[in-house]
Design a protein around this nucleic acid. Structure first.
Length: 969
RNA sequence: GCAGGGGUACCCGAGUGGUCAAAGGGGUUGGGUUUAGGUCCCAAUGCGUAGUGCUUCGCAGGUUCGAAUCCUGUCCCCUGCACCA
């Protein structure tokens, strides 16, 4: 090691660009399959290139980059790629606005976001960069689509679809929120169209069941479970009196069938029409049906505080009892779920209960909350599982829960009046879009052959570049593009038309992680060997926003399974560990009374509605509130490392965090301070230093805690150690007497590695200045790919010693803190100025007694029970002069006070070991008298064990091991 | 309404039975260093007190020798779902 070069000031703009270039020139972040090393696939949800990078991106990718770099240090073969989810409506809309082509808009956006990413220093393997709007990518979208078609997963059918007039497009159910378009918030209407579907429901059960085995946050799992919404139930046929037809009702509670007192149909149910037409009941029914039809789904759900229904004039027969019950149409029954018909059990379903009350329908309780008892009348429905009663049929009363359900299902099935079924809330994926900027669906419409797939050798079906986009909201430009539209049928070679629908962009992102494993492959979507290597056990860390918890993550899981079944890979689950990073918020003016947030222009003003002084609260960064912070400006001002440090120290990845200019500046100062430590290379040249042992011990313990935290992606915790504790420890060591050059260099070398994942540019500069010849980006720890366990740490002799070393020093720290406090008190009690501190350490007998107590404690001795007798028989107790004090001390040691436990229980492991090791407290303090005198500002410090000198001011009685008695004079 | 996550000091945020008046950071205050500046250092930051005390972790109860931590109820905030039979 050389070191000692002239160290200049920390200038992030210089060093960041310099090291980025060195990394690039050395191709360091390129990774290849290497079976000899453990792999780590670190992936971030790739961005939609909407222009520049925003703070959400910065946070997402800073997390990923620090983990990728950390894993490389640990010897992992890391795959860390980046690309762009570049198809989608915004580019198309932008093209319309400027009269350009979405392709150009997209590419210029990609250029700018790429340069932002590079300026941040993210360690991507740029060779693998991809853009989904590039035909080298979407060609494989089409290829996979044809594969799915072969497998029978693609279906084209007429379907009522959600249509947004303003966006001129079809929306998936998932993209409709409160009956409004998720992008433009325009109201959505229903329209019948021929649509392309992917039969995702085929995988519904596997998607649900395998959630058990993957490391997703619980809330994401819960959301997916709800979304898939599997319910086990039974379809039950209720014959209609005097009619051939039956009403088929779906229920998950067949155990309540004996309590059915009416049947309800959705107003849209075709049977309604049939049953009422031409009867006295028709008019009332029409009113209800019209009312429901008029309302959008959104209104319908919201207005349905009030349950409404009409009797249809007919009766149906309960297949289990033969009893006839009235048939109603009800506004609360959803036509699209189950069969659109409900068997109503007001005794055990609150909605039916409310309905029955309103229309005076009998309520019958057929489940009891307590075994062997009659059901209680409570004024509401008992919806839980219970014991069957009042069934009126043999063999049912007394059955509970699943047993009861099964008994009913079996009977129904035997009598051919029903069938056990599984229902899913999940629907097939409607993926066609009547838009331009997406992957063309590779099919051809031929008048004689029908809808035929494009042969794979003809792929890609490319989007034409010669399209003029205008403001006119005139649908899909492909429909009027002759060059694209006209083709020949691959079967009969007659003239034919291309399909003009394109794919939902969620399709693109459903397999990009697989493409990344072999992104340059031009003969296949990806090679199986590469995919299976990188994807074994899934992507090891996938980081992104919670907003994709359901759609994207579910589609990607579906794709992975479908592609597995197509034989393309062996992997079943794409992501093994998912981290959803929290939002980056910023302060926003806020009116407490009105509960409204305002644009930052209102900062410091009064509420425009109520006139109250506006306060500030944290809100998601958004253009509409004007509280966004531009990463670019911050990087220019403080450097990428400062921005990275701020974003990673501000909060743990999952937590929300608030942008703060002053915290950012403080983090910048912190980097200056760290960098400034390099100047010590010029001033420290000793062979030995009094604090060598301590600093080395602290460094080792810091290092293993830091490493453990990084493995757990607890980045904030690890940054606290690497960027804060390591600095203050070094400062303490120097203040306390100093260290040798060797210790300094070792400290700095390891410190450099620790700051590297989060602030890599600073770290590389640092590493070079301390005289290391290798790039940190190319270094690895000499360790296996895991952190040592606590047992391993504590059984390693040096670590045991380290703990003692640290405990001794923290005793001194505590002493100084305590002395400062007591000095303040003492000053109020004396006229003269304080110049002298007398420290009386614990008398020998207290140490001895504490050791005995520790030994007993380690044997799980019961002090409450036996402690009293033990001390009374103790030889110390026989000395009458100190008997009282012995008793008091013993209680303090082993029992404690009302609020705190005895001292033996509260000693840290280090303190315990320190006392057992025969620590000479007086000597340790004596060695530091100069430092103590300076720290608490007295002229003289005197140290001795209590009893070996005068008891100044009667303070000896306060002295116990590691907590000396203090007297100020 | 249902599900999940939260409410900790001036602010952000760690802490999930005793080692907790509660890490760390920001801010503020005081002191030092420096020609200056702060991209420097030290300390204080609930109240009390020549020391082991009191009060505080949304609110109200409870369990316990002991609660920020466990239980019950309650209020508020965030996220997702929404009459799912």
């Amino acid at each position: 090691m050389s070191g000692g070069d002239v160290v200049s000031e920390y200038k992030p703009e210089d060093i960041e660009i310099k090291w980025q270039k060195k990394w690039k020139d050395a191709d360091i972040f390129h990774s290849e399959v290497d079976e000899s090393r453990p792999k780590f696939y670190c992936l971030e949800m790739f961005p939609y290139p909407s222009g520049h990078m925003h703070m959400g991106h910065v946070r997402n990718y800073s997390i990923g980059d620090s983990i990728a770099r950390f894993r490389r240090l640990n010897g992992f073969n890391v795959l860390y790629p980046m690309g762009y989810d570049s198809f989608g409506m915004p580019a198309e809309n932008a093209a319309k606005a400027v009269g350009g082509h979405p392709h150009n808009v997209t590419w210029s956006n990609i250029e700018s976001i790429r340069s932002d990413l590079q300026r941040m220093g993210f360690s991507y393997d740029w060779r693998r960069e991809l853009a989904t709007s590039d035909s080298t990518y979407y060609k494989w979208n089409q290829w996979i689509f044809l594969k799915f078609h072969e497998m029978g997963l693609v279906e084209r059918r007429i379907a009522p679809v959600n249509w947004c007039d303003s966006c001129d497009t079809v929306l998936a159910n998932e993209q409709v929120k409160n009956n409004r378009c998720w992008r433009c918030a325009e109201e959505v209407r229903q329209k019948d169209m021929a649509q392309w579907f992917l039969k995702m429901t085929t995988y519904a059960d596997e998607l649900l069941d395998s959630l058990e085995n993957i490391e997703f946050p619980e809330n994401v799992k819960a959301m997916q479970r709800n979304w898939i919404g599997r319910s086990h139930g039974v379809d039950i046929d209720f014959p209609i009196v005097d009619e051939e037809e039956v009403i088929r009702a779906f229920t998950t509670r067949p155990d309540t069938i004996f309590g059915v007192t009416f049947v309800t149909l959705a107003p849209e149910h075709p049977l309604c029409e049939k049953l009422v037409s031409g009867t006295d009941f028709e008019e009332e029914y029409r009113e209800l049906a019209d009312e429901c039809a008029r309302m959008s789904e959104f209104d319908r759900i919201n207005m349905l505080r009030e349950k409404k229904g009409v009797f249809l004039g007919r009766y149906a027969t309960n297949p289990m009892t033969g009893e006839n019950v009235p048939i109603y149409a009800g506004n609360f029954v959803v036509a699209s779920y189950g069969t659109g018909a409900v068997m109503a059990v007001p005794g055990h379903d609150q909605r039916d209960f409310d309905f029955a009350k309103k229309y005076n329908i009998p309520i019958r309780q057929v489940l009891s909350e307590n075994e062997g008892e009659e059901p209680k009348v409570t004024g509401r429905a008992f919806e839980g599982l219970g014991w069957m009663v009042n069934s009126g049929r043999e063999g049912f009363d007394g059955l509970f829960g699943d047993e009861a359900k099964q008994a009913v299902i079996q009977t129904l099935e035997k009598e051919n009046r029903g069938k056990g079924t599984v229902q899913h809330r999940l629907k097939d994926w409607l993926l066609s879009r009547q838009r331009f900027w997406g992957t063309p669906i590779p099919f051809i419409h031929c008048d004689s052959c029908g809808v035929v797939p494009v042969p794979t050798e003809d792929l890609p079906v490319e989007l034409p570049l010669d399209v003029v986009f205008t403001e006119e909201p005139s649908g899909n430009p492909l429909e009027s593009h002759e060059g694209f539209l006209n083709t020949t049928c691959p079967n009969c070679s007659n003239k034919a038309k291309r399909e003009t629908d394109t794919m939902d962009t969620f399709y693109d992102s459903s397999w990009y992680f697989l493409r990344f494993t072999d992104a340059l492959n031009d003969s296949n979507p990806f090679n199986k060997v590469e995919a299976d290597y990188w994807m074994s056990d899934g992507v090891d860390l996938y980081i992104g926003g919670i907003e994709h918890a359901v759609m994207h993550l579910l589609y990607a899981r579906f794709f992975t399974k479908a592609l597995r079944d197509a034989g393309l890979n062996d992997v079943s689950e794409p992501f093994s560990k998912l981290v959803c990073q929290g939002m980056v918020n910023a302060p926003t003016p806020y009116c407490i009374d009105c509960n409204v947030e305002f644009h930052v222009d209102f900062d410091g003003k009064k509420c425009p509605t109520c006139g109250v002084e506006l306060t500030s609260r944290s809100a998601k960064m958004s253009k509409s509130l004007g509280n966004t912070v531009s990463p670019e400006i911050m990087i220019n001002k403080f450097g990428a490392d400062t921005v990275r440090l701020f974003i990673l120290f501000g909060a743990n990845p999952e937590a929300g965090m608030e942008w703060s200019d002053s915290a950012l500046e403080a983090n910048h100062r912190q980097l200056h301070q760290i960098f400034g430590c390099l100047k010590l290379l010029d001033s420290i040249n000793d062979d030995k230093g009094p604090m060598d042992a301590w600093l080395s011990a602290k460094r080792r313990i810091n290092w293993s805690k830091w490493r453990g935290a990084m493995f757990d992606v607890k980045i904030r915790e690890s940054v606290m150690i690497s960027h804060f504790d390591m600095l203050s420890d070094l400062q303490w060591a120097i203040r306390r007497g100093g260290i040798s050059r060797n210790t300094l260099l070792t400290h700095m070398k390891e410190w450099g590695q620790m700051i590297y994942p989060v602030t890599p540019h600073l770290a590389e500069e640092w590493n070079q200045i301390i005289g290391e010849n290798t790039l940190l980006a190319e270094s690895t720890f000499p360790f296996a790919d895991r952190s040592p366990t606590w047992e391993e740490l504590t059984t390693t002799p040096s670590v045991g010693d380290d703990i003692i070393t640290l405990a001794a020093e923290s005793t001194l720290r505590n002493l100084i803190d305590n002395a400062r406090n007591v000095k303040g008190l003492a000053e109020r009690h004396t006229e003269s100025t304080i110049t002298k501190l007398v420290i009386q350490t614990s008398p020998e007998w207290k140490i001895k007694l504490m050791r005995e107590a520790i030994e007993l404690h380690l044997e799980n001795y019961d002090f409450m029970k036996e402690g009293q007798a033990f001390i009374q028989l103790h030889s110390l107790f026989q000395d009458e002069k100190i008997r009282g004090e012995v008793m008091q001390y013993w209680r303090m040691l082993t029992i404690g006070s009302k609020k705190s436990r005895g001292r033996v229980f509260t000693l840290t492991e280090g303190e315990r070991n320190l006392i057992m090791s025969g620590f000479n407290e007086s000597k340790y303090i004596l060695d530091a008298v100069g430092f103590i005198a300076e720290a608490i500002d007295v002229e003289e410090v005197i140290v001795y064990a209590a009893g070996t000198g005068d008891d100044i001011a009667g303070k000896a009685r306060f002295a116990i091991p590691l907590q000396p008695g203090l007297a100020f004079l």
